[in-house]
C-alpha cells in the first residue's frame, strides 16, 4: 500500500468490514438479493457496480462545484443512468445469456441506494482521487457480501460453483451424494437470500461488539 497514504487506504478498507454498505449502512440491498442464487451472476453484478461507482464518483466529484443543489438528484440520476446504460449494452454484447438472466436488475443499479448514498455523502464534498477510492471501496464491500451470499446459495442449493459441480453428481450419486447428502433446493428461493444476509450480520456483529444496535 505504498501507493496510498494511510488515510486513503482507510477509505478502501473500511467499507470492506466495519462500515460495510450492506450490513452496516443498509444501502444497496434492493438489487443485491434477487440475483445471488448463482455465484456468476453475483460476480458480474459486483463488477458492474464497481465500475459504475468508481466512474460515477469521479464524474460527480468533478462537477460538485457546478451542480445547483436543488436539482442535484436529477443530475446524479442522469450520470448513473448513462453509466448503467453502458454496462447494460456491454453485457448484452458480450454475454447475452447472462444479461437476460439479470434482466431488470442491471437497470436497477440506477436506483441502488448505495450509489446515490455515496454521491450525497462523499463525492459532493471531496476531491476526485478520494471520491474514486471511496467509490471503489464501497462497491468492493458490496461485492464481498454479494459474493459470500452467492457462494453459499449456489453451493448449498445446487451443489455447484460457477456452474461446475464441486460436490459430485446428484443423479449418479457420486462424491458427497454417495453418503446421502441432498441439495437444499430451498437455498435457491428468494427468501433464503434475506436469511443468509441476516446470518452474515449476526456473525459480523458477534465478532465486533461495537456494531451492536440499541434496539
Amino acid at each position: 500500500m505504498a501507493l496510498l497514504s494511510k488515510k486513503d487506504s482507510k477509505l478502501i478498507l473500511d467499507p470492506l468490514a466495519d462500515n460495510n454498505p450492506i450490513t452496516i449502512q443498509v444501502l444497496g440491498i434492493c438489487s443485491a438479493l434477487a440475483i445471488t442464487a448463482q455465484l456468476k451472476a453475483s460476480i458480474v453484478m459486483s463488477i458492474s457496480v464497481i465500475f459504475v461507482m468508481g466512474v460515477g464518483n469521479i464524474v460527480i466529484s468533478l462537477m460538485r462545484n457546478i451542480i445547483p443543489s436543488k436539482i442535484r438528484i436529477i443530475v446524479q440520476l442522469v450520470v448513473v443512468a448513462t453509466l448503467v446504460i453502458i454496462v447494460d449494452q456491454v453485457l448484452k454484447a458480450f454475454s447475452y445469456q447472462l444479461s437476460k438472466e439479470l434482466g431488470a436488475f442491471i437497470g436497477l443499479i440506477i436506483t441502488n441506494c448505495i450509489i446515490m448514498g455515496r454521491f450525497e455523502a462523499f463525492a459532493l464534498g471531496n476531491g476526485v482521487w478520494r471520491s474514486f477510492l471511496d467509490g471503489i471501496g464501497n462497491a468492493l464491500g458490496y461485492g464481498v457480501i454479494l459474493i459470500i451470499v452467492g457462494f453459499f446459495r449456489e453451493l448449498l442449493g445446487s451443489g455447484t460453483l460457477l456452474g461446475f459441480p464441486v460436490l459430485g453428481d446428484p443423479i449418479a450419486k457420486s462424491g458427497v451424494y454417495s453418503i446421502g447428502y441432498e441439495n437444499n433446493g430451498f437455498m435457491l428461493l428468494a427468501p433464503m437470500a434475506l436469511i443468509v444476509v441476516g446470518i452474515i450480520i449476526w456473525v459480523q456483529r458477534s465478532r465486533n461488539k461495537a456494531l451492536i444496535e440499541e434496539n
Binding site: T23, V197, G198, I201, W202, S206, L211, E213
Partner: peptide, 10 residues
C-alpha cells in the same frame, strides 16, 4: 448481535 437490522432481515 441480531438486534435491529439482523432480526429484521430474518
Amino acid at each position: 448481535p441480531l438486534r435491529g437490522l439482523g432480526i429484521t432481515f430474518i
